[in-house]
Write a protein that binds this DNA or RNA. Structure first.
Lengths: 213, 213
DNA sequence: AGGCTAGTGACAGCCGCTGACAGTTGACAA
DNA sequence: TTGTCAACTGTCAGCGGCTGTCACTAGCCT
């Protein structure tokens, strides 16, 4: 966590360029749309060449998910740090909620939280980005599955239950995301509350017979 | 189902061109890889111009999923036709299994089943296609959720349980797909059996404490 | 102070995809 | 049968994402 330690001029310039590109990209994506924004525009906004953009980001998509990656990493770390006595589903639940609580600290070093939340919604409403998001989530789920398998002492190759549990959890998260991004309360508290609410209703959703309740 | 009735010459030619393009595309995708195959190659293999390819398919991706779309449509229809007394999860389970059983008839009109299965695996192992696949699945899930909500007489906007149930089911399907495509038995029977097996283990996966069993 | 190299810009080129326009060929009525 | 019309196709031009190459500038290090 000691990034400010002896940062050479070159490194500082690099970091600034990257941050400028990222901020400009997210700003443009969220205001005029992802597809409508060209890489040239982003580069021009920072007064660098298009080629330089591609030296910092593997592609346009990569810039869109740069911040998301930070929060996902936090989530994985949070799961890893959960006490061993917690059941898998409970550990994931706590890790996610914890992630929302600490979102500000996680994100603010790169971009304003408000910009992050706007980008989050842009991802949900842009088909190409939604696809990429789901694929990335699948990769994260695979990581978590291995983590839980090891933690519970089962073989992830032979026992499908770790992957099943994570897939179910991931499915619930996607419903939560969708509900939040199509709702009318775009606050951080709203998404935290929705997360808990959706997780609480999984059992009821699976047992069927929704008419009676 | 009466496609052969009064098919004009023009229509026949069109259908042939489309089928040729589709077959060539899948053949090339599955043998040399999706990214490694250019649209020009596909068009050339059928002796048409690149422009013509784009008149039949919205894009390279579209060709890759043409057959998948047929099976998904069958699945949605199957859910719709399930008896009203079945619980949601059970209805989806039956619909999927039924889909695998009828796969041959569903697919063979377009391409050989073997080619379909090969393409299925190619999708799983190609990041760009996997992303598209997940997004398409999400769209299908939304359709199913509305279907089940109506069927059970609940409001899909107010009650998250239909979407939750479908998301959970979809998650299990993805685990199944992955397990199948990374396993060593690429037969149709294998995937059918895996489907049932994974669905059976969801309960156990969620209750945690995997060590004891 | 001067050599070294990371970082950059400029240029050329591939590929997916689209719009515009003209040529060809099947459909259908006179 | 023939002529007209609409459908289908090829060609060409162009945009945007992305990559390789190469020369050049600017910070680093001795």
């Amino acid at each position: 966590m000691e990034t400010r330690a002896r940062e050479t001029l070159r490194e500082r310039k690099k970091r600034r360029t990257r941050e400028a590109l990222l901020r400009a990209a997210l700003e443009l994506f969220t205001t005029q749309g992802y597809e409508q924004t060209t890489v040239d525009e982003i580069a021009e906004a920072c007064e660098v060449s298009q080629r330089t953009f591609f030296r910092y980001f593997a592609g346009k998509e990569d810039a869109a998910f740069a911040v998301q990656d930070m929060t996902e990493a936090r989530f994985v770390a949070a799961v890893r740090e959960r006490p061993a006595h917690e059941a898998p589903m409970e550990a994931m639940r706590q890790a996610v909620l914890q992630g929302w609580d600490a979102l500000r600290e996680t994100v603010e070093s790169a971009v304003p939280v408000e910009l992050y939340l706007r980008m989050y919604r842009t991802i949900e409403s842009t088909p190409a980005l939604l696809a990429a998001h789901l694929r990335r989530s699948a990769a994260t789920e695979e990581t978590i599955a291995r983590l839980l398998a090891e933690r519970e002492g089962v073989d992830v190759a032979a026992d499908p239950r770790p992957r099943l549990a994570v897939a179910v959890f991931g499915g619930v998260m996607r419903v939560t995301e969708r509900q939040w991004s199509t709702g009318d309360d775009f606050s951080l508290e709203a998404i935290r509350q929705l997360t808990a609410s959706c997780l609480d209703q999984v059992g009821s959703a699976l047992t069927g017979n929704w008419r009676t309740t």
